[in-house]
Amino acid sequence: MWPLDPCRKEVLRFAFSCRILTLVLQVLTRFLGSSTPVVYWFPAHLLQDREPLLRSLEIAAQKPLARDSPPGQKDPSNPIMELLYNWKTCSPVTRSILGYFLTYWLLGLLLHCNFLPWT
């Protein structure tokens, strides 16, 4: 076997380091995302404290349903969809939280479908 020149050794070392870093990050994000609910509790706490639209939705959800609704039917409104529909009226904290989760979801969808490393 031929000896590797220093340039090839550096390239191989760099490629190996990048791959290890990618694997560690994927494992960490999977571990934290699946076993630590605090990652999701904190944004939910911020949304409940700082978004007035959610408070108005909670008050509306406490009202009884119409008489002509089928028995056993629950309230059809989804609070997250209501926040997305009213994006311009949301607070900056709500926009940043929703933007983060939507970006994470969209990037994960695009990169995973193209066999790129994403968790």
Results as ranks from 00 to 15, higher is better:
2 W>E: 12
2 W>L: 12
4 L>W: 05
7 C>N: 04
7 C>S: 05
8 R>F: 01
9 K>Q: 08
12 L>Y: 06
13 R>E: 03
15 A>W: 02
16 F>R: 13
18 C>H: 09
18 C>G: 11
18 C>D: 11
21 L>R: 10
21 L>F: 13
22 T>V: 03
22 T>W: 00
24 V>Y: 04
24 V>N: 06
25 L>I: 15
26 Q>G: 13
29 T>V: 05
30 R>D: 05
33 G>T: 01
34 S>K: 08
34 S>V: 01
35 S>I: 05
36 T>L: 15
37 P>N: 07
39 V>N: 06
39 V>Q: 06
39 V>R: 06
39 V>I: 14
41 W>V: 13
42 F>E: 08
43 P>D: 09
43 P>R: 05
44 A>V: 09
45 H>V: 14
45 H>E: 10
46 L>P: 06
51 E>S: 07
55 R>F: 07
57 L>D: 08
58 E>M: 09
58 E>T: 06
59 I>P: 05
62 Q>K: 07
63 K>T: 11
64 P>Y: 08
65 L>F: 08
65 L>T: 08
67 R>M: 10
68 D>K: 03
68 D>S: 01
71 P>I: 09
73 Q>V: 12
74 K>T: 14
75 D>T: 11
75 D>Y: 15
76 P>E: 12
76 P>A: 09
77 S>E: 15
78 N>Q: 10
78 N>G: 09
79 P>N: 00
80 I>F: 13
80 I>T: 13
82 E>S: 14
85 Y>D: 15
85 Y>T: 15
86 N>P: 10
88 K>A: 13
88 K>N: 13
89 T>Q: 12
92 P>K: 06
95 R>S: 01
95 R>Y: 04
96 S>N: 00
98 L>Y: 12
100 Y>V: 12
102 L>I: 15
103 T>R: 08
104 Y>S: 04
106 L>E: 11
106 L>Q: 03
106 L>C: 05
107 L>A: 11
109 L>W: 15
113 C>T: 07
115 F>A: 13
116 L>R: 04
118 W>K: 11
118 W>I: 08
119 T>E: 12
